[in-house]
């Protein structure tokens, strides 16, 4: 079932001199199986948006419908059930690690839900596999002694062990190298393909979103300013730049080629696709030269 957001407004510290409107009048439908990327400048309300979706924050106005339930109406002592369905991985999830070894750390969540030893074991194993942490090699390691990227993956596995149906990731790629990012891309894609997990990813870098997402949202000043399919980026270069986001290089190249009057297909996602389109165009050009 999709997530439906109807007219949501969120104001922090309402009624005090520190009052701050973080989101205003958001209307949005998120379809099942979608991988949605969210961008926007610092302070545009991205993290607030994610926290509203799993009930950590309650909107001042509006409805958030997840699986046909309006989660804004669920009483405080039952909201934990929503958080299980809608797993939110915070920025720097490695901060939350508190157990003494990796197995215990990932097992904490399922155990806390009252899941038995055997099933917990299965879940930990799956979560580790999904995040690219080899079970035998990592299960007894002390979290302190892991690298930054490995800790990050343990933090994500913590949430995956809860078997969420929706996965929200707040800047999962921050301070990771190419290899670390690639591992996380793989986990997201695999989850999406095997379980159909709907995923929302917040990032500051559009390059990082392009390989995984199929839809892009840009927030500014607490409002949705752009909502497009990921292969439409090259069509909206101007708008994207105006919103203070730097578009991927290959999309920009395609945009300028098109603007120069080249008859080229700009609906692409990855660099490889862009290269192929350009090669194809050059091919037709050569043919024209030959025949002309």
């Amino acid at each position: 079932m999709p997530i439906k957001i109807k007219g949501v407004t969120h104001i922090y510290k309402k009624g005090t001199p520190f009052e701050k409107k973080a989101l205003e009048d958001i209307f949005l439908n998120i379809e099942n199986g979608e991988i949605l990327g969210i961008m926007g400048k610092s302070g545009s309300g991205k993290s607030t948006f994610l926290q509203l979706l799993n009930g950590l924050l309650r909107p001042c106005r509006g409805k958030i419908i997840v699986d046909d339930y309006d989660i804004t109406m669920i009483p405080a002592d039952e909201i934990a059930a929503v958080r299980r369905e809608v797993g939110l991985v915070f920025q720097f999830p490695e901060e939350q690690i508190f157990e003494t070894d990796v197995y215990k750390e990932i097992a904490f969540g399922p155990k806390n839900l009252g899941i038995d030893e055997k099933k917990t074991f299965e879940r930990v194993k799956t979560a580790m596999k999904l995040t690219g942490l080899e079970y035998v090699k990592f299960k007894d390691r002390r979290p302190n002694e892991l690298s930054g990227g490995e800790k990050r993956r343990v933090g994500i596995a913590d949430i995956l062990a809860l078997n969420p149906r929706y996965l929200l990731l707040d800047e999962p790629f921050a301070a990771l190298d190419y290899e670390g990012r690639r591992k996380i891309y793989q986990s997201i894609k695999e989850l999406n393909q095997t379980r159909g997990t709907t995923t929302i990813i917040v990032s500051h870098n559009l390059e990082y979103l392009v390989p995984v997402c199929n839809r892009l949202l840009i927030l500014a000043d607490g409002r949705v300013k752009l909502d497009i399919k990921i292969d439409e980026i090259a069509l909206y270069i101007k708008e994207i730049k105006n919103l203070g986001v730097s578009p991927p290089l290959h999309h920009e190249v395609l945009y300028y080629l098109k603007e120069k009057g080249f008859n080229i297909n700009v609906k692409v996602r990855t660099r490889e696709e862009a290269a192929r389109e350009i090669a194809k165009y050059l091919g037709t050009l050569k043919d024209e030269v030959k025949s002309g």
Binding site: L56, R83, R84, L88, F90, E95, Q96, L162
Partner: peptide, 9 residues
């Protein structure tokens, strides 16, 4: 951190 742990259930 409290929020992060709350989202772990």
């Amino acid at each position: 951190i409290k929020k992060a742990q709350m989202s772990r259930g």
